Amino acid sequence: MASRPTLKTIADQVGVTVSAVSLALRNDLRISQATRERIQQAAKELGYVYNRHAAGLRRGDSGTVAVCLNDLSNPFFTEFLGHMEARFREADRMMLFCHAHETPSIQARFIRQMAEHGAAGLILVPVAGTTREDLDGPQVRHLQDFPLVLISRDVADTGFDRVINDDVLGIRLLFEHLYEAGHRRFAWLGGGGDTSTARDRECSFRQQMDAAGLPVTRDSVHHGPTTLEFGDAMLERLLTMPEPPTAIMCFSDIIAFGVLAACYRHGVRPGVDISVTGFDDMAAAAYSAPALTSVRVRTDLIGQCASELLLSRMAGEQYPPVRKVVPPELVVRASTGPAA
């Protein structure tokens, strides 16, 4: 097997120094255009492939960015990827990717492997239950002074940059929309308490109910996984109550889709007999039956802001940790209407 061509192979063929070849392949203007073109043509003919790993070792930067998402079974989280990948590609950065399956041990292992492979920075959607100790503790000293940006989910008091959605505002927008439509009997289908998003959204729901003078009872708040099955099963339970809710507010679109599916099985018309809302405004929300009223999380702005923060940290910029809160937008569709 023929040996892989090197910078010296090109230099010998063109009759220049190795350093001249290195500069020309990076399109450095210190090498004349004619010489650059000769060198680049020779590299192409020889099948030379730029060794980014070796270059990264020389400059102490691998050129890679690590991204760890908590759960790909929820399409919402994949929306961040497209916005971030485009920005990193523009910056000539390659992405390392991990699907953590909402499992702390997988997340911890990837963080360690990312450091071992010399990634230059990390964007992380923390898995449920992630604490400050998991990011700042003694077992992750390799993250000290490491460029890291958290998105979507917050981890309180950590010393890293965070870019998150304003979940409190999102719930307020939904509640006000439903309250103005005459709803007074509400149910909350939540996602537990292991993430900042679940806690903040439920807390905001309770605050809105209290401000409106409406009681929060055992029948008002229900916890469960972010699945279609949970939403589907909960509707039947809610309908058997002496006074069923006229509005069901769901922690996520996924849960709301399950509720909508169950409505038709029980002969309930969403948007007429009962109002249903989601949160996130995934692409599918506009095409459910009926189209789902939801809160649009600006994954584009969050992804872009996080990418810029990480690139600036990787470039060595020093400033206090940033906590950026991005306001969402209310999107009203046919799944909500006046209280029956």
Rank of each mutant, 00 (worst) to 15 (best):
L239P: 07
T226E: 02
G231K: 13
E236A: 14
H223A: 13
L235T: 02
H222R: 13
D232Q: 10
T227W: 02
D219T: 12
T246F: 10
V221C: 07
T240P: 00
G231R: 08
G224R: 05
P242H: 09
T246H: 14
G224F: 03
G213E: 09
L238V: 14
E236H: 10
R218I: 00
E229Q: 09
D232S: 12
M234P: 02
A211E: 14
T240W: 08
P242R: 02
E243I: 06
L238W: 10
E243N: 04
E229K: 07
A247K: 10
T246S: 15
E243W: 02
P242M: 05
E229W: 02
G224Y: 05
T217F: 00
L239D: 08
E236M: 09
V216K: 04
A233S: 13
A212N: 14
T217D: 10
S220V: 15
D219N: 10
T227G: 06
L228G: 10
V221E: 06
T227F: 04
A233R: 15
D219W: 01
E243Y: 04
V216E: 06
P244A: 05
A211N: 01
A247Y: 12
H223K: 11
P215D: 02
D232L: 13
G231E: 10
M241N: 02
A212W: 11
T217C: 07
A211S: 09
E229Y: 00
L214V: 01
A212V: 07
M241Y: 11
V221I: 14
E229M: 09
H222K: 12
E243Q: 12
E236K: 09
R218F: 01
V221F: 05
V221M: 08
R218Q: 05
G213Y: 12
V221H: 06
L214N: 03
L228D: 08
H223I: 04
F230T: 01
